[in-house]
Amino acid sequence: MTIRALRDDYHGEFKDSLEKFGGAQLVYLGWDKHQMFCSSRAFPLPPEMRFQELLDNVMPEAFGQHPEFNQIDWNKAQWILDNSAFQPDHSKSLTELDIGHKSLLRLVTPELTGYKGAGI
């Protein structure tokens, strides 16, 4: 049963489906063990955006305030896409990389341990 309702055929409208974002898709970006940012962030991005553009244009907006941001070596950065390890080809688009609507993309930088090494 997907809901207990007065009517068995009750159906809830999907409030956040892809077509509601005017051509963009939602991508959530998180930086593991960098709790300066209280949570991962939501960004509406064009599905044809290349991964390199995401690194160049979106990542600074998401995490540029962090004192360690400039130390990130993007060639060594590790990624987790929707809870699985992920090795993106920087020249490919979000769609080509299977970064879907409402996907969660996490940046992992084991050599950067956060402010005062406290995961912040």
Binding site: T2, I3, A5, H11, G12, E13, K15, F21, A42
Partner: peptide, 19 residues
């Protein structure tokens, strides 16, 4: 347990991003 109840949650962030 009840996905049909929560798929139409009014999430403020998504609402902002939908304009």
């Amino acid at each position: 347990n009840e996905p049909e109840k929560y798929v139409h949650a009014w999430l403020p962030v998504h609402q902002i991003l939908q304009g």
